[in-house]
């Protein structure tokens, strides 16, 4: 196609705005259905199992290593300034405010978000969503709302697990391996972490959960509208873009939220 650069930029911009609008409407509809549907509870429980329980081991593993790295790196940085005693504060604050919510959300995007997109996408291309519509079963409340509700529960809980296990990881390197004073580690945590930090972490977890679930379900739900591909390939592309868009949005919104909460 013959196009000048302005037309191309304009089109990309309009597409981006259209995309954001479409995602926002999708989220709104999903939330409305969450409160309107009577069968939301059993369905959400199942999704909590899929999103939350099945990701637990991964989160345990990642958070332990994350905390250990923080402990190690923090120790060797702080020792230069002779303030190793602050290790507990460094580890716990960076976990609770930043790394916990962000890494949990990114891991869950890969673990749960991608499978949401793929599952809903396959349902779309095999007419299953059309079949739901024909049976007068609201496909938003059948497919999207339970996942939204489940991530509202799972993301904060898994973030909390991440934080705690991460702090234990920092303890392992700092205290158990590098022989820092145990009392100092925990004293610094309790004296430096305030309620605001914890609220900030959980607000982030909730926002990331909504973002990831909305974007991933949206990509799957509209698999058939993709212009780059059709059929199974479209499901693959939808999954890729669901994960990529989610990760970008997690970090972008993290910046915004951090600047609000500082």
């Amino acid at each position: 196609m013959k196009d000048n650069i302005f037309a191309a930029v304009g089109r990309t911009f309009l597409e981006a705005v259209g995309f954001m609008g479409s995602v926002a409407i999708f989220l709104f509809e999903g939330l409305v259905q969450t409160f309107a549907s009577a069968k939301i509870f059993p369905r959400s429980l199942r999704q909590i199992y899929v999103i939350g329980h099945k990701s637990l081991f991964l989160i345990l593993l990642i958070s332990l290593f994350c905390g250990m790295v923080l402990g190690l790196q923090g120790y060797y940085t702080l020792i230069k300034f002779g303030s190793v005693g602050f290790l507990g504060a460094v580890v716990s604050l960076s976990l609770i405010r930043e790394l916990g919510p962000v890494l949990t959300a990114i891991m869950l995007t890969g673990r749960a978000g991608s499978s949401m997109t793929a599952e809903i996408g396959v349902m779309r291309i095999t007419d299953q969503i059309d079949a739901l519509d024909v049976m007068d079963i609201n496909s938003m409340s059948y497919l999207v709302s339970p996942r939204l509700a489940a991530s509202l529960v799972s993301f904060p809980l898994l973030t909390a697990v991440f934080d705690v296990v991460g702090i234990v990881g920092g303890y392992l390197t700092g205290v158990a391996m590098l022989n820092m004073n145990q009392g100092a580690y925990f004293y610094r945590i309790s004296s430096s972490v305030s309620m605001d930090d914890i609220v900030c972490g959980f607000v982030k977890a909730v926002v990331f959960g909504l973002l990831v679930t909305t974007v991933c379900c949206h990509q799957g739900y509209y698999t058939h509208r993709r212009r780059d591909s059709v059929g199974p390939e479209a499901v693959g592309n939808a999954t890729t873009s669901g994960v990529v868009i989610s990760c970008v949005l997690i970090l972008a919104s993290d910046y915004v939220l951090t600047s609000i909460f500082l």
Partner: peptide
């Protein structure tokens, strides 16, 4: 539907009565 369009997550029995159970 042409390919049945059964829900993959449900058994045949659950699929068959889906309009009623919903």
């Amino acid at each position: 539907f042409q390919d049945g369009a059964l829900l993959g997550a449900l058994t045949l029995g659950e699929n068959a009565v889906l309009p009623l159970s919903e």
